[in-house]
Design a protein around this nucleic acid. Structure first.
Lengths: 135, 135
DNA sequence: CCTGTTAGTTGGTAATACCCACTACTTTAG
DNA sequence: CTAAAGTAGTGGGTATTACCAACTAACAGG
């Protein structure tokens, strides 16, 4: 009954469900999934462009345009590094930070139903197992 | 220590990891993630365009172009429904089917490391918990 | 200095995905 | 049985995403 890759199958399906939630939240604020990720990353970092690109798994040139558009919306700001005249640090503006917090809360709210079928104990068990996968 | 939304956080992170794997496999075959999904869906269905759009969570017009490009590559075929002269059924070509099977195998292979940190028992436990979330 | 490397941007291209308008077919009403 | 309303899919127009390759500006070592 238990297929050899049932775990992987379920994992993929749940992942799509999670992505759907994230995309939906992003779309509700006129953002793309990638822009949502950017705001999430900048919540506890102020990376250089290249670092941001690595975090996102994208090309540097892709991030240029991405940051351009975010700047145009007043969500993030570029500021020149003083220690290295070439590099640029990207940070959240106050308004971007507020939006990031709002998005985080909304994601939590919309994702909660996913785990609500589980009891508290199982929810914690799941958290531990997932955490172990990330190590 | 256990934050209220640690589970959700881990879930999101694991989901991104899964998506990264899927995108990587897709890219290795010159496909987008969406095209990978299309092939996966068509593995056990022969839906109409609108049904395919629903499965993907996309607009009908987006799916038109998507199928166009897949047809151009010889992966899928359109065939007119005889019961409804307006609708079109989309199906895998033999070559598309072969690719779909290949992709499935490759995804399994590349996703396996994700759960390899878990023992057999925990792997099964994870499968059950994830399965319960999908119900 | 001056050569080589690194950081970031720009330009060009292809794909994705939206909305809106349109055609063609079906269904329902009168 | 025909006219109106609805449905299926496509195509145009636009914005975004993401790539690669080429470029500019700035740093680093010799």
């Amino acid at each position: 009954m238990t297929e050899p890759d049932e775990v992987l199958d379920n994992l993929a399906q749940v992942s799509f469900a999670v992505m759907a939630v994230l995309s939906q939240v992003a779309a509700a604020h006129e953002l793309s999934l990638t822009q949502l990720r950017v705001l999430g990353i900048l919540r506890d970092r102020t990376p250089k462009m290249a670092e941001l690109a690595t975090h996102l798994g994208l090309d540097r040139s892709s991030v240029s345009g991405l940051v351009d558009r975010a700047v145009r919306r007043g969500l993030v700001a570029r500021e020149a590094s003083r220690d290295d005249g070439r590099s640029v640090r990207v940070s959240l503006t106050p308004s971007g930070g507020a939006l990031a917090r709002e998005l985080t809360a909304e994601v939590s709210r919309k994702m909660a139903p996913l785990t609500s079928a589980l009891g508290t104990a199982d929810r914690n068990r799941l958290g531990v197992l997932l955490g172990r996968m990330l190590a």
